[in-house]
Simulated scan of single mutants.
Amino acid sequence: MKIYISSDMEGSTGVVSAAQVDCTKPQYLFGRAMQAADVEAAVRAALEAGAEGVVINDSHCTMTNLDIAKFGGEVQLITGTPKLLGMVEGARGCDAAIFLGYHAMAGTEKAVLDHTFDQYTIYSLSVNGRKMGETGVNALLCGALGVPVIMVSGDDALCMEAGSLLGPELVTCSVKEGLGRGAALCLTPESTAELIYSGVKKALARLKKGECRPFALEAPYLLEVTLMNTLQTDAASLVPGAMRTAARTLRFETEEALELRRFLYSVMECASATLSGF
């Protein structure tokens, strides 16, 4: 059994501030330590539950936050960027995926550091009419690879979002209760380590019973993405396959789920290029 972990930082234990997830700020050392602590608890549980190997994908910002020296020989770490599948690079061939330190989609009330991939360009997105954030898109990409998402951790809002989208078989682990975008009622690392450890054990038990299925939507896939302003949309409309349906909204249709990621990140790159001139 090979387990995959996609590790973000905003939803990690104790993290509430943008400075704590920004590698240029002194507070980043705290965010990095909390991300690592959450991952270590999940890895320990997976290996004790019988996993023969664990693949971790560092999925935050520069994606160079985790230290490979912290893990044992059964663990492999995917680090650095860009990566073809971004936050789910390396999921192919694994038996199940775990999303750690994830956050709610942009526009979610009382959600810590809510955003959808890029807080400066993406206002909202949907696939086949279903509004989703990073959890949904990444679960869909994993599903296209035949990999079920069996557990997520983050704040209360993220757990509610993930559970409503991925179904009752998903194990959710709330490490904090969001009080706003930059405030939360947090549990201690000791408490969340136990919660994550128990959650992984529970999720893997369900997996072994055959209760977990990959998340899938019916093709063709229709992605609609709304950007922050019209200048960004002007630039992003140049991406091949983009159809502009409103002043700030682009539409893209494909038969291949993995092409959604390629299009979405191309849109973000084009939109981001306008930021200095807006």
Rank of each mutant, 00 (worst) to 15 (best):
R44V: 13
E190R: 13
V21P: 00
L260H: 07
S6M: 09
I98G: 06
T274I: 00
V175A: 01
T188K: 09
I3T: 08
D22T: 13
S266F: 01
E190Q: 13
G72E: 02
K201Y: 05
G31K: 09
C61E: 10
R32V: 06
L217W: 00
M268F: 01
T13V: 15
L264V: 05
R244W: 10
H60N: 04
P240H: 09
I196P: 15
Y120L: 08
K25W: 04
V15Q: 02
G180T: 09
L275D: 10
Y102L: 04
Y4A: 01
R206C: 00
A273D: 12
G241H: 04
E48P: 14
Q119L: 01
E259K: 12
K202G: 06
F263M: 08
S272N: 14
L158R: 01
R32K: 15
A49K: 03
A183M: 14
G101L: 10
A69C: 04
A184E: 07
L166D: 02
C270M: 14
T249E: 09
V39S: 00
L100M: 11
G182V: 01
Q119G: 03
T230E: 11
D156C: 00
Y221R: 06
L231Q: 12
R244V: 04
I5H: 05
E190V: 12
L158W: 02
E211A: 15
C94K: 00
G129W: 00
L47I: 15
L231K: 14
C270N: 08
V75K: 00
A51Q: 02
G163Q: 06
L250A: 03
T192A: 03
S276H: 15
F252M: 11
F99T: 02
L165R: 01
C186D: 08
G73S: 12
E177L: 04
S198C: 13
S276M: 13
L217C: 08
G154Q: 11
G146N: 02
T116W: 07
L179E: 10
A45E: 03
R261W: 12
M105P: 00
L207V: 05
Q20N: 08
K176H: 07
Y221L: 09
T116S: 14
I68D: 01
A162W: 02
A111H: 03
G86H: 08
L223V: 06
T230H: 07
L140E: 05
M243L: 13
A106P: 04
G107C: 06
H60F: 05
M63F: 03
A51V: 12
K176M: 04
A104C: 04
R206S: 04
A139L: 09
F215N: 03
K176C: 10
S153D: 08
T135Q: 08
